[in-house]
Design a binder for these strands. Sequence first.
DNA 1: CGTTAGTTTGACGCGATTCAACCTTCGTGG
DNA 2: CCACGAAGGTTGAATCGCGTCAAACTAACG
Lengths: 261, 261
Amino acid sequence: MEMRMMTEGEAMHSAAVRRLSSTVLLTTEEIEFFEGLQNNRAQLKPDEKIIADGEEFTASFLIRKGWAMRWHVTPLGRRQIIKIYLPGDFIGLHVNFRRSAVHNVSALTNVELAAIEPTRILDIYRNYPILAAGLDWSAVRSFNIISEHNISLGARPARQRILHLFLELWCRMLLIEEADDDSFDFPLTQSQIADICGLSLVHTNKSIQHLRRSGLIVFGKGRLQFPDIDAAVEFCDFDARFLGEFRTKRPPHAVLASGTD
Amino acid sequence: MEMRMMTEGEAMHSAAVRRLSSTVLLTTEEIEFFEGLQNNRAQLKPDEKIIADGEEFTASFLIRKGWAMRWHVTPLGRRQIIKIYLPGDFIGLHVNFRRSAVHNVSALTNVELAAIEPTRILDIYRNYPILAAGLDWSAVRSFNIISEHNISLGARPARQRILHLFLELWCRMLLIEEADDDSFDFPLTQSQIADICGLSLVHTNKSIQHLRRSGLIVFGKGRLQFPDIDAAVEFCDFDARFLGEFRTKRPPHAVLASGTD
DNA sequence: CGTTAGTTTGACGCGATTCAACCTTCGTGG
DNA sequence: CCACGAAGGTTGAATCGCGTCAAACTAACG
């Protein structure tokens, strides 16, 4: 909820800049240009749709504040949440086409959104190669995150699945400097967690309580804490390389990320 | 296995060109340039690795013939196959970074591979905007395919999951003109199908037999057929829009695809 | 003709779903 | 200030889908 106090110098930048800066060294000129893209803003309340399944959309979106989700409901009435968007994440970054959405995207919390015209994205790719590299890395990481979800859904039992999700979100929040060393604000309901993890609400609840009793998490009141991070990482096969990349505040610049497609 | 006889004029092009051509209208000059990229070739046998988890890799790859897979094994010993690569698919398209792989990629069948230098990909983006758009669309589609897998793994029961996979692969083979109206060569074993769908081998087998008895598939001897495609699509909630896009041999050019991140 | 990879079958048990309450917290209006 | 309802969380019991174990069967191949 609250913007944490920044002890260092770059407190003023948007989450998106913080995220890009964690992978790519940006000049103040690039930062200014990038912040300038975020003028066209909108505020959303929980459950408001950003993109509706089937509709055409003509801009890319950047989450400035809050959480959002991409989701789908099957004819059997089950909802699958495909991806969680955090501050600094792009929605619909690829812009070379007329697009009609194949899933829904909607706000989970209060969300501040910036709509970015396709032409301005192209502009980045033409004139700001470093920024462009940052966007590319963003896309690669997005792919990797979904891949990990696949592994969770297909090959990890309930408790591991849930804890893996928790650690992933914590790492992503760390990257944008909105998490502490061992905890962060966590706005999801158990029902939403269930729909991300492909589990029923009841079983999700029981699994979470088991994790609590094991001492792996402290969870409640919109806050999530890991009393023993190493144990948690170990328990759910959380990829240490991801963790490493995500945690480093200033990694080797412009030479990172992991392969995709 | 066999290259199907081409009745039309463009039989000579590689699968990759056929795939790009299905979304984007290419000039003969663009096609020639693109085919020229595929000089550096390698032949692989089943189970040979293309990319090994943890190792750095310095080129992108293009599958020219055969099937490959991206996979991961959990500490509990379960293998999850994250993605199937078909002829014309890129592996590791994003090239702006030094990359160490986070998953394994290996051949499922005999594979003919082209290694493409990062600089040549950049070349495409700089000098061949239409080709670049095709690659972008490729990446978007790749994301969408994995998203559908997520939905399957999280929200669809075994039979639907398996049939959905079958239809997806059939559509992708159609797109590169390696499938018939209602059937195609299908080299996966049931054990591999199980690892894609996050199911046990035994249960996969029983589900497949159920699908057979329902008359939704004819499956055996490396070949898969759909006696009643509409029924199959209906049964497993296969997205008709995807199907539409995939099936169209010549869709509205340069204005297609669906949003992502 | 034996060996191996892949498929099939049956029995058993566990993990996850479903149904059905009940409880707690919080916001809203009387 | 309390009453109420809505949203989220918790709990127990019954059920079922799917995993595991174990064994047999089939086809391809040397």
